[in-house]
Amino acid sequence: MKVTKAIKRMAIVLAPVMLFLAAGCTDNMAVLDPKGPIAAQQRDLMLISTILCCIVVVPVLLLTAFIVWRYRDKEGRKAAYTPRWEHSFKLEAIWWGIPIIIITILAVITVRSTYALEPSKPLESAQKPLTVQVTSLNWKWLFQYPEQGIATVNELKIPKDVPIRFEITADSPMNSFWIPQLGGQMYAMSGMAMTLYLQADEAGEYWGSGANFTGTHFSSMYFDVESTTQADFEQWVKEVQDKSPALTSEGYKQLVLPSTEQKMTFSSFPKGLFEKTVTQYASASGHHHNMPLMEQEQEQENSTEQKQASHSGHSAEGHQ
């Protein structure tokens, strides 16, 4: 009796909240509102896996409610009571079996999508990818466009329908580079250049952030992302080349110092700045002739144990 009352009471409290949540859900859900192929596939993957899990979860929830209701102890209840019933091979086989089947299906989907959506895998496109080199600094993002020779801070402009090849590093504590509407994140780590392919399918304004804690003003590391037509992009590049100041080595040193910054654009940057940023931390792990183990590791990237070791060496070499 008491429990039913309590459940009703809870339902009354929770119902408006749920409605409120549902209303809030419709807009603003960046992750569920993808604007590019990667984010779209990741969204689909979330939905598929949710549905698969619900095949087990929803019946379990209903079953819980049913059992708790039916087998509550009350006067003159008709439901059976079997205090010594403790084992049933059939039943147990069923609930070992069902999760195994569901997880197997999900596993197949996951493995396939893990290979399909490997961040460093180039996107299929008729367009040649555009490279943007991303550096996490305390507490701002530096974007360099090596093909255009320009650089920006806290502002990312990209042409739509063109795959973007992000090369990501950090001259700061480890960060994570994330543009929710375009696709998943990738760590920004010193001494390494991580590759991440993303693409925007439509023109529009999005935002990105640093998703991994880097200190005091970490919360200020949002940046604007704008995807435009190819023509507008070229127009913008030209404007930056013509009107913005150059980023000097001295200027970069200033930029590395801890601070928060507004948007900035630069008409040029010192040659090899990104590579230098990467190798200044990677150089210490040289002396590969002493490391037969790691040499092997670079070839076959399957092993997990010393993975991190090969990493530092690997990407450093890639950029020397």
Binding site: V31, A39, Q41, Q42, R43, L45, M46, S49, L106, I109, T110, S113, T114, A116, L117, P119, S176, W178, P180, G183, G184, Q185, M186, A211, N212
Partner: peptide, 10 residues
Amino acid sequence: VAPADFQFHN
């Protein structure tokens, strides 16, 4: 689900 985690992580 690893690729979905790229969006959930952190």
